[in-house]
Design a binder for these strands. Sequence first.
DNA 1: TGATTAACTGACTTGCGGTCATATTACGAA
DNA 2: TTCGTAATATGACCGCAAGTCAGTTAATCA
Lengths: 223, 223
Amino acid sequence: MGITERKEREKEQRREEIIAAAQKVFFEKGLQLATMDEIAEAAELSKGTLYLYYKSKEDLYLSVIMRGAEIMYEFFEKATATNEPVLKLISNLGDSYFEFFQKNRQYFRMLYFRDNPQLHKQVSQEVLQVCLEQDRRIWKLVIDLIQRAIDEGYLQKNIKPVQAAVILWSSSTALMQQIDRNDNYWQEQMGVNLEETLRLSNSLLLEAMMTDKGKLEYHSIVI
Amino acid sequence: MGITERKEREKEQRREEIIAAAQKVFFEKGLQLATMDEIAEAAELSKGTLYLYYKSKEDLYLSVIMRGAEIMYEFFEKATATNEPVLKLISNLGDSYFEFFQKNRQYFRMLYFRDNPQLHKQVSQEVLQVCLEQDRRIWKLVIDLIQRAIDEGYLQKNIKPVQAAVILWSSSTALMQQIDRNDNYWQEQMGVNLEETLRLSNSLLLEAMMTDKGKLEYHSIVI
DNA sequence: TGATTAACTGACTTGCGGTCATATTACGAA
DNA sequence: TTCGTAATATGACCGCAAGTCAGTTAATCA
C-alpha cells in the first residue's frame, strides 16, 4: 500500500510549507512581532492547522532555527573538508563562520536569540532533542580540528581543545553580534572597523595558543 | 515656595518605588513573564499609575537595566582607582567585571538582554539617552585605560585602544553568558571549567597585545 | 470652604496565543 | 457509485496581558 507512504510524504511537505511560511514572517518581523495569524496567512492555512503540525509559536521558531543550524554546519563542513594544513583549516573555519553570518544574518540572529532564557516554555521534546544534537555536532567538528592541531604539534599541548574551542567561538560570536547590531556606531563614532577587529581577535587568540612550529607554519600560510 | 520642590521629590520617590517593585518582579520572572498588574501590586499602586510614570513595560525594564549599569560602573571605577601599575588595573578590570557578574547575575542578564533587537518599540527618548550615556562612560573608562597602557609602553603601539577594548569586552561578556547559562553542561559533559577558561581567554588576549616590557611586568605582577 | 489642579484608579479595549466543536475531504467497503 | 469512517482543516472563541481613559479622590490655594 503506497497510500500511507504518500500521506506521510504529504504530511512532511505540509510541515515544510509551514516552516517556509514561518521563516518568511519571522525574518521580516522577529519572534515577538510575528503573529500566528500572519504565518497562517502566509502558509495559506488556518491558524488551527499550524497547531496540528507544531506545538507552539516557539516550537515553530526553533524549527526555523534548526534550518539555520543545518546551513551553518554545511558551511563548516565545506570549509574543513580540504587537504590543507590543519592551521589553515582552523583559519578557514573562522572565515566560514563569518561568511555564514554575512550571507545568513537572519539565521545568525535567530540562532543566538535561542540562548535567551525567556524561551522554552512549550517546545516539543523532539525539536529540543534535534537542537541539542546539532549543537553537539558543530562543537565536535571544532573540537576535533583543534585536537588535531595539538596532536600535530601546531597548538600548545597544555591547552584543552574544548577550552580553545569555547574561547574562539565565544569571541567570534560576540564580535559578529556587535557587527550585526552596532557596526555603524563603531565605524562612524569610534573609527573602528569591526570586521578587521574580528580578524585581529581570531589571530591574536590563535597565535597565542600556538607552538613555535605553529607560528612558523601559520605565517607562511595565512599571511 | 518649597511645595513644588517637595512635590518634585515625592514624584521622584514614586518613580523609585515603582522601579524597586518592577525590579523585584523582573528579577523573579523576567521580562516576558512579568505582568504590569503584578508590578502594580508589588508597588501598591494601580496599573494605570505605572503608566503615568513610565511609557511602557519596556521603558520600565530599561530603567531597571540602567540601575544595573550604574552598579557595574561603580565596580569598574573602584577596580581602577588605585595607584597600581596600569597592566594590573586592566587585569583588575577583568576581575571586577566577573565579580559584578557573580554578585549581580540578574542585572547582568538584563544588561545583555537589552541588545535584543526585539525591544525598543515604546521606550521614552529620555531613558534611551541615559542608556547611551552610560554605555559611553563605561567604554571611555576601558579605552582610556588601554590607551594609558599603550602610552606607557606596555601594550603594542600598533593596536588601536578601541579595538582592544571591544575584543576584551566581547570575549569576556560572551564567556560569562556561557557561564550564566550552560556552566553545568560544560563542567559535567565536557569537563571544562568556564571560569578558568575566561581567565585564560583574558590573559591570552592581553599577553598577545603586550610589548616585551609589558610581558615582563605582567608576569611579575599577576602571576 | 469651595474651586482648581494634580494624582490615582480600575473597568474597558485591543490584540494575540492557543483551543475545540464543527465542517470538509479522502479513502475503502459494499 | 454510494455511504460510513477517519484524517485533515477551519475559524469562532477563550483567556490573558498591555495599554487607555473617564471618572474618583486628594492636595493646594484663593
